[in-house]
Amino acid sequence: MNLQIQINEQENKSIIHLSGEIDVYTAPKLKEALLPLTKEKDTIIEANLEHVSYMDSTGLGVFINALKLSKEYESKLRLVNLQERVFRLFQITGLHEIMDIHSTIRGVDG
């Protein structure tokens, strides 16, 4: 399974649409796309995970890295439309309490 990444840049806001699986193989691709976006001061980076059916802890590591950078560069990271299974990972790790996560949805891709 692959990961598709599509970035939609607006004024002071970048939306990154992700689709597929985020794991040890696809995480470097996500890292490369997501991290530079967090380095713009006062921008909002919204990651849409609606079509992410699976994520492992390596994927979580990329979002932690992005969160650290957004604090350093004063940008805002927001995650939206997480599937249940993916959201559970943020919940177990306690990250849902320090990350801006909006609206979770039920598992659609299984």
């Binding site: 802890s57 979580l60 177990i92």
Partner: peptide, 8 residues
């Protein structure tokens, strides 16, 4: 540790 690493 590296910023993308963590430990549970």
């Amino acid at each position: 540790i590296d910023p993308s690493m963590f430990i549970t």
